[in-house]
Amino acid sequence: MRVIVLLKQVPDPEQIGVSRTKGTLFEKGKRILNPADEHVLELAAELKSKEQADFVALASGPEPVVEVLRRAYAFGADQCYHLVEELDEGDHFAKARALAGAIRLIAKERGEVDLVLAGKGSPAWGAGQTGARIAAELELPQALWVAKLRVHGRELEATQLAGGEEQVRRVPMPALVTVDPSANKPRIPNALLLMKAFKREVKKLALEELGLTPVAFAAGTTQMRIVRTYAPD
């Protein structure tokens, strides 16, 4: 089976502040891998050893995004792809369309994808809407907030966690799954693995390669615009 892991680089929650005069958030330090995505990498690593899965990682954004893909190599990824784009971060529609395009391109290059894995959400808005958006783009069935995942042939047994209750669902592959942080305890890659990861090649993809028409990104209508940000009293 082939697994594609979607990774996101996010502002470090410990390293942000709010400008009182401008009403905007600012970042003081380097961006980090979305903490929820560590659990996604762990699950992919487990699928690689249990199911002999081909473990592919994909992240999109400007150049520094490459750093989160190095972490995927340290978790044992077979190949990492960086979709280089500078789309508005509040434009979940365009981001999802671009990532779906990249997944199609990778499937053409490497073979059919059976499972797309994403994190449950990110610290900024806790949203986690990109996974289901990509599933819609690729016409895939999905299971969100999955705490336990078993593979039975071409079918997944997914235990979803909602409001403290578990519900088990069977989903045919190919499918998209978002991983609940309770699913596992991510390993901590040692220094040697991290150093080796630094030498691996990250393949670059460009938006122009995806065959998306400019109308795919109807500028000005699909993004969320922050009017102001403030700290509650």
Partner: peptide
């Protein structure tokens, strides 16, 4: 115009989507 909680409620943001 919606008020959303950012960073687990450390900050609040007012957001809108314009013409969508």
């Amino acid at each position: 115009l919606g008020t959303i909680h950012a960073y687990g409620g450390t900050y609040f943001s007012e957001v809108t989507t314009g013409g969508a």
